[in-house]
């Protein structure tokens, strides 16, 4: 073990970590946007509506992320139509966007499935109550079901985010110098895989730690109404946002 090597590699590795974070959050954002309609359609009782999201989710969960990444990066570029397209090629020629597109499509499938489960886990009584108040289906979905499902899905979503952080290491196979790609490039020069990968691993762990903490904080906030009231007087009303008071 050579600690000097580990420290020497740190600046370059942090540069790689920055790219890893970009890939994670940009793809995570688009993945989430795509997942919501997918999950709503997937939770529909109508076979015709849920067929398409079902096939989508089945494909992206059923094939390895590496295969999907190679299909987008090396696969699409085989078609002259793609290469000559003035709209597609400026995006698809960049490994950066290929990685973000693939990761977003991939994570969307998983998030959609998590959300679908959460939508179906919303207590039927709450939906009935919304109906009884005269809310339309779309209003019920937007005001009652989705916010409630989001809270239920949060822990599982955090898990998915952490899995994607590690999945993003595959970006190194399409020439990107993310944290893993940078580590491999450094090893090509110093032949010290133990020290270099260990340092990279520590950075991944540090990122995971921050993610876990951040998610726990959000969970704590959005589920404030689920916590037992503090025994002290007053205070409690400030914490719980209006309309989310405990049922009794």
């Amino acid at each position: 073990m050579n600690v000097d090597v580990m420290i020497g590699a740190l600046p370059k590795l942090l540069e790689g970590a920055w790219l890893t974070l970009q890939l994670l959050f940009i793809s995570g954002f688009f993945g989430l946007l795509l997942a919501v309609p997918l999950a709503i359609a997937r939770a529909s009782p109508h076979a015709a509506i849920k067929a398409l999201p079902y096939a989508y989710i089945f494909f992206f969960r059923g094939t390895p992320l590496l295969v999907q990444l190679f299909l987008v990066y090396y696969g699409l570029s085989q078609f002259a139509v793609v290469r000559e397209s003035p709209i597609l090629w400026p995006i698809l020629r960049e490994p950066y966007w290929c990685a973000i597109i693939t990761f977003a499509l991939h994570t969307a499938a998983y998030i959609a499935e998590i959300l679908r489960g959460a939508i179906q886990a919303v207590p039927p009584g709450e939906i009935e109550a919304a109906r009884a108040l005269g809310m339309r289906r779309s209003t019920t979905m937007g005001r009652i079901i989705l916010p409630r499902a989001a809270r239920i899905a949060l822990p599982a979503y955090g898990n998915e985010l952490i899995l994607m952080l590690k999945g993003s290491a595959l970006a190194s196979t399409i020439t990107l110098l993310d944290l893993t790609g940078m580590a491999r490039t450094i090893i090509a020069r110093n032949y010290m895989p133990l020290e270099t990968f260990l340092m990279a691993g520590l950075i991944y762990m540090a990122i995971t730690f921050v993610l876990v903490r951040g998610l726990r904080f959000i969970e704590h906030r959005v589920n404030a109404h689920m916590r037992p009231r503090p025994t002290g007087p007053a205070k409690a009303t400030e914490e719980a946002p209006a309309g989310l008071m405990p049922p009794s």
Binding site: Y74, S77, Q78, R93, L177
Partner: peptide, 18 residues
Amino acid sequence: IKLYDTQENAYLDLEAGR
């Protein structure tokens, strides 16, 4: 410089014009 895992992948990207 773009670094590839295998030589074959470098050729694929040369063909693709990347």
